[in-house]
Amino acid sequence: MEFLQEINDIGYPTEYLLARIHGRRLSLLGDWDRVLSGPDIEENPASSNLREFMTAGAPAGIWESHQKEPAWIYHQMNSRLRNVFQPYFMHLELNTLLTCLRYKTGKGNSTEIERLLYFSLLSKAIKDVLKTDTDVPSVINILGKKVSFIRDHCAGLELVFLKDGFMGAEQEITNALFKYILNADTHPLIKRFFVSIADARNIITLHKHLRWDTTSSPFFIEGGNIRKSILSKILQSYNAEALATLVYKHTGLHIEGTDAARVENALQRRLTGRIKKWEREFADIGLILNYLWRCAMEAKNLSIIYHGREIDRGILKEELVY
């Protein structure tokens, strides 16, 4: 069972797609200060790509566009680019898959799942399983046996689900994807991107565990630059200072008394800066990655603005990633 949709179309030349992305990224919001300083915070995003979705009372539309734009790019790509960006889209669609499973676990209504899958790049077989199969363990069982990256890197997913519940299965699937991406013949830039993502997720996990002193054992993703042994050592010794040094090294942020959301925000800001630099190093792949990342961050920022429109704008600004 394929994870992503297979597209038989040969797609367009790379130069064509790059030119279109150059044109489209002009409509992305860049000046967040201006957005926040405007008299009506909800009116400003009307100038962005998301104008058709950014209607009052429809925050879900922002996330719909967050799916729609990458799906458009995926369909425009030629087979070389599609191969290079396959890990990125798999990671993106893993979130869709997990969100659908969460809806199923919580007995959410099926129209929400239909809506999530409408622009999704998941293969038809997986979409059918998610739409028709109401029993979460049986969906997990099918995914564990038939999706190749889960089957190869995560044995006994069904047992994990029975033992640790949905959260355990979610962590195993995520780890399996990272193992697959970082061990496969991935483009160096995409590999760098996922190493950074793995590091960021591990730092956030560690920070949450130390701050909230949770009893459950943390789940660190394999493949990051920061070795798991270092993370475990910091956790075992409850060494907040070592964590602060680690975060400072990776974000330039002093985390004393900082909440997890701010650490995540700082890590994403740092990654945004890195992706901009990578664009100069890898012209075509870098441009596309930067555009995809900026689209994701725009959706995130607009969602924050939408939900936090009553909050002080200074605080809101600190929450944005740019």
Partner: peptide
Amino acid sequence: QSKIGAAGAGTLAEK
């Protein structure tokens, strides 16, 4: 021309 043409077609689609 193949490169400029492809990029030009992309640009025209947007602008």
